[in-house]
């Protein structure tokens, strides 16, 4: 049996459920941030930074960051395996797809570490 080595959970079903759980977390966080903008359009620095200094919000932010990493990887993996195949790119498809996926992993790693610095560093 050939197993896929690049998708997140080595199983389509696992990726499917992770994509949906992470989507709900990302949606909840996005709506919270948007709601804070709408309810408080003229926030000053103290009000804005106090939102992110709250410990519950820190947890929520980090969990959302982790959800973003998983969600982005599954999404970009799906896109790359659908559109960067030998049908579109010929015999060098695997090379380009792996390079593209490596770039995605690098960007996700940067987002993760940068995000932790922002949410937990201060």
């Amino acid at each position: 049996m050939v197993t896929n080595v690049t998708n997140l959970g080595r199983s389509g079903l696992y990726d499917w459920i992770v994509q949906r759980f992470s989507a709900v977390i990302l949606a909840a966080y996005s709506l919270c941030i948007l709601a804070s903008f709408v309810m408080n359009p003229d926030m000053n620095f103290e009000q804005w930074s106090s939102i992110f200094e709250n410990n519950a919000m820190r947890f929520f932010s980090i969990i959302t960051l982790l959800a973003l990493c998983a969600h982005a990887w599954i999404g970009m993996w799906t896109i790359s395996t659908d559109y960067m195949t030998s049908l579109q790119l010929g015999s060098s498809a695997t090379f380009f797809r792996i390079m593209f996926q490596a770039g995605c992993v690098l960007l996700i790693a940067v987002y993760l570490l940068w995000g932790i610095q922002i949410f937990w560093g201060n």
Binding site: W114, I118, N122
Partner: peptide, 10 residues
């Protein structure tokens, strides 16, 4: 992330 980091810095 860039705008968020800058806005929370100071």
């Amino acid at each position: 992330l860039y705008l968020l980091e800058l806005s929370l810095e100071s």
